[in-house]
Amino acid sequence: MDFAFLSETFFKLLAGFPLTVNLAVLSLAGGGVLALLLNMARASGWLGARFADFYVFLFRGSPLLIQIFLIYYGLGNFPAVRESFLWPFLREPYWCALLALILNDAAYTAEILRGGFRAVPRGAVEAAEACGMSRLTRLRRITLPVAIRQALPAYSNEVISMFKSTALASTVTLMEVTGIARAEVSATYRAIEIFLCAAVLYLVSTLLITRALRLLETRLSPWLAGNRA
């Protein structure tokens, strides 16, 4: 075992870690907002519901990799895009990868949130109506908090999944952890050591995230603690 090489590699990979975290956090934040919007569209009526269905179908039915390529390589095909104010962003691999991750995460999160909404007891909403809460207050004070707590276990999986999905950003030249690992392998041909190093970095991160989310779950819904099968 070449420990000097391993530790050197580890620190090189660590340099990509902030970008990995950056992509994960922003895509989850953007995806979360978009998912909420999709659910509001769904609640708005027939057309909104069909739109949400179609959106989810598109982004869950095809691979994330092809979505990233479609945005990064494909959008530039359109003169309208190239001439728009968005082009300075859409020509950057960072923004393209982030956009693809956000759009993709929104589809999965929308479904999770939808499950959460469905699990909100009808009576809780009626009680809120009965004491005169407005629609928005009901959403903010009752429906959303209950739905989020219900959806949290499934959402924890989605967080982990997105954290791992950021690795795909490396396919459009981004130098996050996997990108750096890939470049180092091209330079040294020591694939096993380098990729294992990267794997350990991801594994430790996902384990810590899992632990943190589980703590959050018990904090938010103490009455459900210990009931997870």
């Binding site: 791992k164 996997t178 096993i192 990729f195 991801y202």
Partner: peptide, 14 residues
């Protein structure tokens, strides 16, 4: 806990 892409890299290049 490991990205799918990395697992594929490990098996192919490794």
């Amino acid at each position: 806990g490991i990205p799918d892409l990395l697992v594929i890299y490990l098996f192919y290049f490794g």
